[in-house]
Design a protein around this nucleic acid. Sequence first.
DNA 1: CGGAATCCTGCCTGATACTG
DNA 2: CAGTATCAGGCAGGATTCCG
Lengths: 164, 164
Amino acid sequence: MEDGTSKSLGYCPDTDADYDVLQWDTREDCEVRQILDRVADKWSLLVIALLDRRSLRFTELRRKVDGISQRMLTRTLRHLERDGLVRRTVHPTVPPRVDYELTPLGATLHDTIRALVTWTETHQNEIAAARAAYDVRTADEQRQAEQETERREQIARSVSAGRP
Amino acid sequence: MEDGTSKSLGYCPDTDADYDVLQWDTREDCEVRQILDRVADKWSLLVIALLDRRSLRFTELRRKVDGISQRMLTRTLRHLERDGLVRRTVHPTVPPRVDYELTPLGATLHDTIRALVTWTETHQNEIAAARAAYDVRTADEQRQAEQETERREQIARSVSAGRP
DNA sequence: CGGAATCCTGCCTGATACTG
DNA sequence: CAGTATCAGGCAGGATTCCG
């Protein structure tokens, strides 16, 4: 209800004849895209990665996922619950206590997501190096571009000075 | 330069005494989080998933990634290039031609992301079922809540009518 | 404690126009 | 073709408040 199910039937002119490479339905209204957009959400990813077998309470999650607002945590958890990835258990105590844990389905996704986290941990140095290199390159190009612009402006000035 | 490069080296003051479960640095300024936030972006994910060995031109990508604005495609590609995941090749022809392809590093990430896409394809039926079930449940609860509210309002009305 | 409701800001997006 | 630039608008997301 409310969100990602039926949408603008975004018809997709899509591909024509390049089936040489594996492809999948990339249309926006495609089921896989819908799910992927949810799963590829940074908060969802973190929550699932943190729910490693052990169930966590709302506030525990809030503390562990640094930077998340309670609004987004609530939304994220509702989405994950709706998708059958997380089970929400309310204990009718006072003060209230709500536990979140992965469902079996969520656990299978957890494995995949852990792989992503592991990849990140493994390659973070390479990425940092790539970023540094890129930034240097870009800074150089910008300096050159500025010089180029200045040169042209000088030409333009001398021209307009020639015939006022 | 500017964003997430050299920072808090992975040690995590974080938790106090719950090391029972595997944990990693979840702080917002953590290197891994920075990368993860980028990788977990829906557009990045799609682009990497589509760049399967074969290089693609800008417009090819634009057509394949249904729903992306050219602004976001440009941004996404720049980010991926900066992170060393995608190589951008400009052919000085006319009209211009720019090819994008995965770097070796990007290819390793591609494997992980394909796993995510495959997971989605495999479990989309289960998720659809979970969503349907959830929506039914929620609709029921809402109907009950509305009835409850109405009942209380009636009581309130009869009370205020009793002593005006 | 675990939310729901409200307000408000900022970014994404879409459209358009202009370069090279 | 492959962008960059700019502007309007809409909605995601943060901060705050209040309730069971």
